[in-house]
Amino acid sequence: MMSLNMRATVVALVFLAVLLGLWEAMNQPPEASEALTEFELLMGGADDQARVPPPSQVLALAWQELSNPFYDAGPNDKGIGIQLAYSLYRVLTGYFAAALIAIPLGFVIGMSPLMYRALNPFIQVLRPISPLAWMPLALFIIKDSEQSAIFVIFICSIWPMLINTAFGVANVRSDWIRVAQTHELSPWRTAWSVILPAAAPTILTGMRISIGIAWLVIVAAEMLVGGTGIGYYVWNEWNNLDLNSVIFSILMIGVVGMLLDMALSAVSRLVAYEE
């Protein structure tokens, strides 16, 4: 008997094969009954209707792109690695800037009922705003499309981290606080050696939600600001009518998003504890 993991892998591979098979089969150009005209040859086949490229073509392109991911042949032709690196740079910069503000501020909100009540209305109004709605204002104030994109990432990552930190800090078990009190720990020591480790799993959950949202938002933001990045790349290839590249970059967005989530999940495991 195979282990559950083994069986799951087999089933997943079967699904993949079926999916790719159907996709491939449904997107073949019709057989040409007669010799192709010169025009048809120019257009790439006897097809009067545009079709989604079959997976065989996408995989061929993927192979080609991934074997040379960092080439740079001008603004309209850069390797997928370069585009992803631009996106990752923006996401991580905005994300860590948000963490730098959200986690200490969340601590304050979580520890002080006064600050919680005072700041809660702001959070409730600002949080539901689509991060892209900030874009025009950011462009106007910052006057730099690159930094505006980073700002959009910053503003969308801040809320889950802020709210989760405040929640985690406010809900640290009172027993642990009392232990800190009976050991005469200073407020700083209490925050550092009791509240932070106690709230860390909740904070990390917020950070994980944030990185997911940031990665969703960067694609849209880069479609708007243009120039570089995976979001720009998707849109640019659509303008080039290169659907192979569009599908390939969609897959790459998924893969990178998954890797980001896995990294955060690994960090959460480090700070997790069992009660």
């Binding site: 642990w176 009392r178 009190q181 009976t182 009791v194 106690a198 860390a200 069992e274 009660e275």
Partner: peptide, 19 residues
């Protein structure tokens, strides 16, 4: 007035730091 290290407490629910 307030907690102090001069007075140690053992709580019923142990109050150990789980991490």
């Amino acid at each position: 007035a307030g907690p102090s290290l001069d007075r140690g407490v053992v709580f019923q629910n142990y109050s150990l730091m789980p991490w």
